[in-house]
Design a protein around this nucleic acid. Sequence first.
RNA 1: GUCCCAUUAGCUCAAUGGAUAGAGUAUCAGAUUCCGAAUCUGAAGACAGGGGUUCGACUCCCCUAUGGGAUACCA
Length: 571
Amino acid sequence: MISYSSEIAKIIKENIAELELSEIEAMIEVPQDSKLGDYAFPCFKLAKVMRKAPPLIAKGIAESISGNAVFDRVEQVNAYVNMFINREDFSKEVLKEVLEKGDEYGRSNVGEGRPVIVEFSSPNIAKPFHIGHIRSTVIGNSINLLWQAMGYRVTRINHLGDYGTQFGKMIVAYRHWGNEEDVKNEPIKTLLGYYTKFHDEVENDPSLDDEARETFAKLERGEEEEVRLWQWFRDESLKEFERVYKMLGISYDSYAGESFYSDKMPAIVSELKEKGLLIESKGAEIVDLEPYGLTPAPILKSDGSTLYITRDLACAKYRKQTYDFYKNIYVVASQQNLHFQQLKKIMELMGYEWADDIIHVPFGLVSLEDGTMSTRAGRVVFLEDVLNRAIEETEAIIKEKGVATDNIEETARQVGVGAVVFNELSNNRIKDYVFSWKHVLDFNGETGPYVQYTHARCSSILRNAGEDIIKNASEAELCAEYVTGDAAYELMKRIYELPEVIIEAGHKYEPSILTRHIVDIAQSFNKFYHDEHILVDDEKEKLSKLKLVTAAKTAIKNGLGLLGMEAPERM
RNA sequence: GUCCCAUUAGCUCAAUGGAUAGAGUAUCAGAUUCCGAAUCUGAAGACAGGGGUUCGACUCCCCUAUGGGAUACCA
């Protein structure tokens, strides 16, 4: 599709010698109020170079470009050149493009196949998969999808928290108080119970701690019985996680978590030593990062064991060697900002120029109405429960409305899960928020169900019109003059913007940019729907409008797809 | 203490340094003999405070206030 902003930049460039083409294009903006124009060019900055008052410059530009066929009209308002695009040509262009591309509309190849890693979700084994995990999981998945849509080759990694002294404790607890049956029935709840029990018991019997340390040491040495139990705990936990991933439609290329790097740490530690970065301090081996305004990073504890950052150092190097990534993206809570600053700095000090390609994508904290989440205090909301409640709620609404779907359960799942996902992806990821059942189960207004409803409505119109009317229509039959009214044109513009929005959302690691744009498309469509009758008697007009409906449906569906959501035909 | 982040309408959130700061929700008032009312239209409602930079600041810089996070041997 032609890029209007670069076309306009070329036209303006013919009238301004003082600026580069790229500078001009960067200055072109879309007015907040579309009454002012489709595109605008502010001339303030030109005043100095051209030694003329901005309004005069604007006037000159407006007069000389107004004859161009791209525009319906061009106006000068103060320092602005306001441009109105020829609606009919624009509409033809957009409809042709969207209908041709179909499912591919919105995809691009700005990534040119470069390899990228997205690490996301990364829950801890034997810990509840709660509402706090939704952020990394859903934001990470959308970033994965966005980068794929931009033509990057993405490797999705779930960096499981499956290692550390906690597993020594777990094994000890299991041996003292556990049984196989319970673990099999409800792995995470049972294992968590063991973990809690361990902490209660250790108050009276400190020797348990020594036992746990010893057990973890055995696990590290690879002793058969310990490894078997650890593996079993891991497998059982993963089964539960995968149940949720399946509901969300998420899959991974690798589950290489912390344990995977356990044998790769000695190498990175000796490399740090060789490069003279490791110093002894208070019994521990650290990298001093004070000159860079960061706190010291301990690499080896006083007892010689490793830490989180030791594993992440080994991990980053392994990933570079294995995947030769262009970007290594970590979707991890903002609480770990310091950790990632340290990680990048150490990699840089080790002389790896690709340290800059380590990208931490932080997000804010989720808390509950009665405080921060605490498993031990019973203050925890399981992600699976949230999804299930949303599905139940949706099913009730579908039944109440008497919607004719062929599969109520399937539709309820698509809409219920979609509501939760969409809600999560609606706001800037950096903001903290308080989880609220009322809010997550509200399906009116700017919500997933609203957007999906709009999609289903498009589908419904197309069904009413007859399945093949679009397919059988030839190119010549598109009479775009019927879809140039204000409402249709606004919708057309939102659809046109989708590919650029996808790239922006991807490169900014901010799915909410796309989420909001999909809401804009849905709102524009609904306005168009109310303003104009679509299934009119005039065949040419009807066909043109149906093409716009098809384009809107396509844009919504493709957009939702990149959020990890489905778009039901009926709901 | 130090560092980082946040603060926009009653509530939840938008706004590449640019024109009259946009939505949703809640409130009030309306719209369906007609393509799906999980919809649409209208009213009312906001930039935490103070400086500075700039032709121009919600946006950049400084100070203050409030809230959150981090602060070497957890992850």
